[in-house]
Design a protein around this nucleic acid. Structure first.
Lengths: 204, 204
DNA sequence: GACCCGCACGGCACTCGATGTCAAAACAGC
DNA sequence: GCTGTTTTGACATCGAGTGCCGTGCGGGTC
């Protein structure tokens, strides 16, 4: 690690802060290596060595090689349902859903986010893992939508369908965002995509 | 293999027919084993042994363990764009897309299809691989949609968005289909889902 | 029938991702 | 400085996936 451990080790506990540092370093090193070479060509051995830890330690921080990059997005997506639940039930679903996806936009745009998204989008294996997470989110968010409409998501297909359309819009925006290398703000792309498919999000 | 090689070895060539037989056997055995136990617990060793071939031969038929099940769907999905291209350009996109997805419905319903879909849907790793394929299809089908509307899919986000909505409807129908174990015909579920989101498929 | 060519198969060895085990090291609190 | 807990690294193991080579089988030629 670095030498910057000499400031106040007070608040979050020193061990915890070190752990976060190693975590961050692994993500950064991995994204860097995979941006240069491909995901497949980059081995866990290389990532661990570049971060200054052993291969075994790598797997104590991440369950799989894919997780090094996907976990960053995964923990953001886990907050989606909470953000949707915080919106007023009076809002139209299309508006509430659009606002819930603001959890993914950062101000100002972090170049590392663009790099991360780029590597994921162009690597089928990583996209696969990301989409696995998306399925979980879909059901969670659909449960919230069903709740505010007072229907049962197990028998009524509309909540999940509405949410799936929202994710289709999100993926469209994300793809255009990385295609333009982050030049066009993600917010604008989200607005455009969500507006186009809004009718299919207001099924209830 | 079996002893049933004594009929006319005329048309497709004997070697080719033997190869198809082994291919089919591997898919069937794999789906059966993975339906009993889980996908992860089932090893390639077991599948190969149950099919009467070596582990090495298994990988000459399938590039990966996931492919044993996903490849069956993959080769169907590869025909999607062709079926869409065969529709009249006068049709509304929502109708043309709905009809294109008829490539996935089989008459009568094959119980093996339901089993296959069930294993895939409930196994995250397999869903991931399936969704990787879906991304390819999305772009192919979007190219056809863009072509019939005379727009450039590289700059206009609408074709891909329309197709993504169609796949959201398809996935919804597929999920309900396996949830009901094939009792409700896939056609009816597709009709219902496509009707609900039709407005978002007629963007051009 | 003998020979040869092509091809699919099996066996072996190897890389790499992923996991369990264990001993040494780093840390926290006393 | 000592002790109990946690973290780490080294080793071993398993399964997925791949390259290489020898072999057996079918088909074609003389």
């Amino acid at each position: 690690m670095t030498h910057a451990d000499a400031d106040q080790p007070r608040r979050p506990g020193l061990a915890e802060r070190k752990r976060r540092l190693v975590h961050e370093e692994l993500v950064d090193v991995a994204a860097s290596l995979m941006a240069e070479c491909s995901f497949e060509e980059t081995t866990v051995e290389q990532i661990a060595a570049a971060a200054g830890v052993s291969r075994r330690t790598f797997f104590r921080y991440f369950a799989s090689k894919e997780d090094v990059l996907v976990q960053s997005i995964a923990h953001i997506g886990a907050k989606l349902d909470a953000h949707l639940a915080a919106r007023s039930p009076a809002e139209k679903p299309s508006v509430a859903l659009r606002r819930a996806f603001d959890v993914f936009v950062r101000h100002p745009t972090d170049p590392k986010d663009v790099r991360l998204a780029t590597v994921i989008v162009r690597t089928p294996a990583l996209m696969g893992r990301y989409l696995e997470w998306q399925i979980q989110w879909r059901h969670q968010v659909a449960a919230v939508i069903a709740g505010r409409a007072g229907v049962d998501p197990a028998v009524d297909p509309r909540p999940l369908l509405m949410v799936s359309v929202a994710f289709a819009a999100f993926d469209s925006a994300m793809n255009r965002w990385v295609a333009g290398q982050g030049a066009v703000p993600l917010e604008a792309l989200l607005d455009e995509a969500f507006t186009l498919v809004a009718p299919a999000m207001d099924l209830i």
